[in-house]
Structures are given as structure tokens and as C-alpha cells.
Write a protein that binds this DNA or RNA. Structure first.
Length: 338
DNA sequence: TTCCGACAGTGGGGTCGCAAT
DNA sequence: ATTGCGACCCCACTATCGGAA
């Protein structure tokens, strides 16, 4: 048994088992459940910053080092510098879980990372101007042992000692208490949110309530200027086309196609049919083949994660109509950070 | 009984690569 | 050169179902 594993208590050592192959262990990452929960005073949780990047599992064994996406696709050619950093480690048998991110202006920036995601040529990846960092936050296998049944705190302790962390590799730090205050501060700083994890929990290869996604709420009202045709089994409409006023111009802010139940789809479609107009209400060009336009009189509350560079909403969802708001009052609000 | 997790199906922005125009 | 499409990332959400609690 390796020195690291020998450092475990006898009770913890009993939780170890002979590991299946790294590929099997990495087949399905543990996923967090979106949650509104805010009461973490009871303890038993650890808190990590929610990183806005892509999930990446790393396997190293006698066959070499492999990076795997959430769907099991090989990502070695996309992040060769991460492969190098892992292949250089003294520890030579592990399965890691973590997140790849790209930074801009001190914040993780998904749109920047996207310029790297599609690269499947190692040389192009090395030449890319998008530097990436691999934040490692869990370990599933170490020196021939399956460690997924160990409590999270023990796994993170092993993980911290199993690797030496230098760019582009980073250990994901965590806090043991003060979740509420941490979340408030995270939102003020413009972070996406926090992940709360049960400190005593094992690693479960599925979505689990032991990991909670706590997101900073962002949203505002938008004017509805039209809709797209429904597809497939959808009824009513596909998505609402929404915007906000900039002076007298109605700027287009994108589509929102989720958050409706069947009754809402039907009701809103009926209201928009009454507001139908042949003229485009937006001042921007809207590339929608199946668009129907409506006089801009309805106001909808929309939740979203952030504005994209192109002035569109990211991850938009419909939260409800606002009968109490005048369309003319709807402007782009300054991000306050929830 | 209720609740949770998995699945399928709808919708979003964005990137890349490829084929058709 | 432009456009459209699919395959990937990230995702939110509704609706359904079977099994766990």
C-alpha cells in the first residue's frame, strides 16, 4: 500500500477496495443538484467556488494519461498542457475529477474557454492564446485503490497530497463553514455561485443531493416582441423573442424557450395572437425563420446567468408575465451581482 | 404515501467543422 | 463569401415513470 493510503485511519482503510479500471471509474461523474437551500449552519458541508468551465476527468495508469469529457470523449488533444502536467507527477496511478476554466479579468470566462473547446489538433491547442487551468476537486482512484467510498474530506486530503500543483494544475480549495456569507460574497463578486458538498459523503457517479449547486439569482423584465413556431410535440410556441429599450429603440436580447408548462404556452400564444403585427418591433436584425411579430406590450420576467459578448442572454428561462410593468420602462439593468 | 433520480423531449447561446449555396 | 447544419460544450425546464424512503 502506498504511503498516502497508509496514512488513513483503520476505519477509512476498510472503505477502500480494489479499483476497477480508471476508464470504468471515470465513466460517469458525480453531478450536483440545483438548490435554493441556504441554511447550512448545522455544519457537515464544505463549500467550493462554482467554476464556469467544462468538466474534465483525468485518468493515469500504466497505459498513460487520458482526459475524458463528461460524455467519455477523449480530450487529450484539446488540453495537451494538462496532459503534460499530469504525466509529470510522481504519483502515477489515479483518477481525478475537476473543471477546466479560462480566465479573463480575474473571472472564469466560459465564452473564452469556448474558443478552445473545439480544437482537436494538439499543435493548434498549444498555439492557442486561450490559457486554461485545471481545477482538481476530487479523486476516485489512487495507487490501485478505489477511494470513492471514503468521506469527501478524506478524499480531498489525499488529493491535496497526491499531486504537486503548478500551472496549469490547481487544487480547488474549500471552506468548512459560513456557507451563507460565502454565497453572498460570491454573488457580490460576480461569481456564478457556490457548490455545497456533504463532507462525509462518498463519490456517487450520478446526480446527487450530496452536492448542491447554489446559484446567484440574476434576472430582469423584458419586452416580448414575438415568438417562434413550436417544434416536435411542442404546442403554443417555441420561444419568446425578447428585448429591452435603449432610448426609443427596442434592442433584441435573444430567445427564451423554457420555463413554460402547457397551459402557459397556450395562454401566452393566445395573447400574442391578439397583438400580432407584420412589422418587426426590434431595431436589431433577428435571424429567425419562423418568427411571428407582436406589438411590444407584454412584459416577462426572465432569469438568466449572464449577458454574452453579443448582448444575448445566457441560459434564459421564463419565470412569468409581469402585469405590473409598463413595456416602455424596460431597460437593460446594470449587473449588480444578485 | 411522497419523494427522488433517470430519461426523453423541448427550448437557449456559442464554437468549430463541413457541405451546400 | 455566406449560410445552414450537426456535434459538441454549457444549460433550464416540463412531464413521466419506477423504485426508494
Amino acid at each position: 500500500m502506498s504511503e498516502l493510503l497508509s496514512s488513513l485511519s483503520p476505519d477509512e482503510r476498510r472503505l477502500l477496495s480494489e479499483a476497477p479500471s480508471g476508464a470504468e471509474l471515470a465513466a460517469q461523474p458525480m453531478l450536483a443538484t440545483l438548490s435554493d437551500r441556504r441554511d447550512f449552519d448545522a455544519g457537515g458541508w464544505i463549500f467550493e467556488r462554482k467554476l464556469d468551465g467544462v468538466r474534465l476527468l483525468a485518468v493515469r495508469d500504466e497505459r498513460g494519461t487520458r482526459l475524458l469529457s463528461r460524455n467519455g470523449l477523449r480530450e487529450n488533444a484539446t488540453y495537451p498542457e494538462i496532459v503534460d502536467a499530469l504525466a509529470d507527477q510522481d504519483t502515477a496511478d489515479f483518477v481525478l475529477d475537476g473543471e477546466v476554466v479560462a480566465f479573463s479579468h480575474g473571472r472564469t470566462d466560459f465564452s473564452r474557454l469556448q474558443q478552445r473547446l473545439g480544437i482537436t489538433d494538439e499543435r493548434k491547442a498549444r498555439a492557442s492564446h486561450v490559457a486554461v487551468t485545471y481545477y482538481v476537486f476530487d479523486i476516485l482512484r489512487l495507487d490501485g485503490s478505489d477511494v470513492t467510498r471514503l468521506p469527501l474530506r478524506s478524499r480531498k486530503s489525499l488529493l491535496r497530497r497526491a499531486l504537486s500543483y503548478h500551472a496549469p494544475l490547481r487544487f480547488t480549495p474549500h471552506r468548512n463553514e459560513g456557507g451563507e456569507e460565502l454565497l453572498a460574497r460570491a454573488c457580490r463578486q460576480g461569481w456564478e455561485g457556490l457548490i455545497a458538498k456533504r463532507a462525509a459523503g462518498g463519490y456517487q457517479p450520478r446526480r446527487s443531493g450530496d452536492w448542491l449547486k447554489l446559484k446567484c439569482a440574476r434576472g430582469q423584465e423584458f419586452v416580448v416582441g414575438g415568438f417562434t413556431e413550436p417544434g416536435g410535440s411542442r404546442t403554443g410556441f417555441g420561444a419568446l423573442l425578447i428585448g429591452y429599450y435603449e432610448g426609443s429603440r427596442l434592442r433584441y436580447a435573444g430567445k427564451v424557450g423554457t420555463g413554460y408548462d402547457r397551459a402557459t404556452l397556450r395562454d401566452i400564444r393566445a395573447r400574442l395572437d391578439e397583438l400580432a403585427t407584420p412589422s418587426v418591433p426590434f431595431s436589431d436584425r433577428v435571424r429567425e425563420h419562423t418568427a411571428h411579430w407582436a406589438r411590444p406590450e407584454l412584459v416577462a420576467q426572465i432569469g438568466f446567468t449572464e449577458w454574452t459578448r453579443d448582448g444575448m442572454l445566457r441560459h434564459p428561462r421564463f419565470l412569468g408575465l409581469r402585469e405590473d410593468k409598463e413595456p416602455g420602462d424596460v431597460v437593460r439593468e446594470k449587473a449588480t451581482g444578485g
